[in-house]
Design a protein around this nucleic acid. Structure first.
Length: 422
RNA sequence: GGAAGGGUGGCCGAGUGGUUUAAGGCGCCUGUCUUGAAAACAGGUUUGGUGAAAGCCAACGUGGGUUCGAAUCCCUCCCCUUCCGCCA
């Protein structure tokens, strides 16, 4: 959420931001109008309340019964006025808040302006693409061939976009998760195991609600929501808290499954395990001071890149343009790994600085070491990495002519020493 | 799922309709004193909104209600503790 004071003082910055994001900026006018209206109402109702408080005190001290009655009657009228104005203010407030809740963050000046994903900028490409003396299979052929992916029974259990990993396939994914968590711990993150179901408030804090309600699974009976990413509980964790400056930055890593309805992506990536309604992810998350967030962003990106490097996966880093930038984000880097069988680059990580956007929604502040007002923290999130796609890349890039798969060296301790999956 | 008790400032804790604009204590900050520290004493010590400012308004788990006036009375929901039941 953006600061209303900021919008009031610099509406043009927001107008430009919305235009850069290929969005309509008319909403700014409505916002400013409602803001003016709200403040006028507040001035009026608060002076009435002040009057009521004063007279109420007088009433308690008035001995004369007639005078007392007179004042009570007068305040009854004032009370009605207050109730009416309070209701009006509440309505304006509600409109204002719901508009504000749907306004995206302002892109950082370093984010390139662009219309859509085609104008994202490739910053660097790292590693050699693997060479084969046979045609490498895509994982949806390779997996069933050696019996580690079972699409048919996944569909039988739940429906389309669900699958079962068998034996070494399941173990390989679990190894990836365990290895990544341990790697991030070495990189300075602390592990968290969080709930996979959260309240609506928690999703609002992370910027998922109200805008992305269509992408979420919701248990109506208990009013609990399945997390679409660990970023959600990792943001909500500190909701309404004030942190000590000396404890910042705080860096966390967490494994969670992620649940997404993918309604907006119906028909995309339907082959294989690239886009499921349920997938596993290891997440990185940082709370820091505003002045440190860009430096932390570079660290997080480097940590995600190291994950690819150690697995031996060729990857490239893209900076998202304004037209493709996520709702919460001011600057985002995507990491894509090469998948030799699919013959394409797969997004496995998205590393973002969201500034104080989530902190304002979640009300997360820190107390400056030097005296002064509490300030909003900055938060950053990044995948480190997203699971099925990392698994795809490992499987496809390391396949041999007979379909067997060479296990990356770093994973072997978690694979019980297995070097080749057959 | 059932029963009982509870939820007040950074923490402990008083408060059952009007000098409570939340007592008192602890902690913390500043000052005095001191070579320094401790102790003592004095002052300060939540957040948000609004206003040029003085100030004003709001918040005692949540949301409603009653009243001239609610931490206090009524209703709703949430959470915590203890006991019972069930359970990986």
């Amino acid at each position: 959420m953006l600061d209303l004071n900021f919008i009031r003082e610099q509406p043009d910055v927001l107008r430009t931001a919305l235009a850069d994001r290929q969005m309509d900026s008319d909403v700014v006018e409505t916002l400013l109008l409602l803001d003016t209206k709200r403040r006028a109402l507040l001035v009026k109702v608060e002076s009435l309340k002040a009057q009521r408080n004063t007279v109420s005190k007088e009433i308690s001290q008035t001995k004369d019964a007639d005078q007392k009655q007179e004042k009570i009657l007068a305040m009854r009228t004032v009370g009605d006025e207050i109730a009416a104005l309070d209701e009006k203010t509440r309505q304006v407030d509600e409109k204002l808040t719901s508009l504000l809740a749907n306004i995206p963050n302002i892109p950082d000046p370093s984010t390139p302006v662009g219309k859509d994903e085609n104008e994202n900028v490739v910053l660097r490409t790292m590693g050699e693409l693997p060479k084969f003396d046979f045609t490498p299979l895509p994982h949806w052929e390779l997996g069933p061939k050696i019996g580690i992916i079972d699409f048919d029974r996944g569909v039988k259990l739940t429906g389309s976009r669900f699958y079962i990993l068998n034996g070494a396939g399941a173990r390989l994914q679990r190894s990836l998760i365990a290895w990544m968590l341990d790697l991030h711990i070495r990189q300075g993150y602390e592990e968290r195991y969080t709930p996979f179901m959260v309240k609506a408030d928690t999703l609002f804090s992370a910027g998922q609600l109200p805008k992305f309600v269509d992408n979420l699974y919701h248990d109506i009976e208990e009013d609990l929501w399945m997390v679409p990413t660990a970023e959600v509980p990792l943001t909500g964790m500190y909701r309404d808290e004030v942190l000590e400056e000396s404890t910042l930055p705080q860096r966390f890593t967490a494994y969670t499954p992620c649940f997404r309805r993918e309604k907006m992506s119906a028909g995309r990536d339907v082959r294989g395990i690239k886009r499921g309604h349920q997938f596993d992810k290891v997440e990185m998350y940082i709370y820091c001071r505003p002045e440190d967030s860009m430096r932390e962003l570079e660290k997080m990106l480097a940590d995600a890149e190291e994950t690819c490097k150690l697995l031996g996966l060729p990857y490239r880093v893209k900076q998202l343009c304004t037209g493709d930038l996520g709702f919460n984000s001011i600057i985002t880097y995507d990491i894509e790994v090469w998948a030799a069988g699919c013959d394409e680059w797969l997004e496995v990580s998205s590393v973002s600085n969201v500034g104080d956007f989530q902190a304002r929604r979640a009300n997360i502040k820190y107390k400056p070491a030097e005296a002064g007002k509490n300030r909003l923290v900055h938060t950053l999130n990044g995948s480190g990495l997203g699971m099925p796609r990392t698994l795809i890349s490992v499987l496809e890039n390391n396949q041999q002519a007979d379909g067997s798969i060479i296990v990356p060296e770093v994973l072997r301790p978690w694979m019980g020493g297995v070097e080749v999956i057959r």
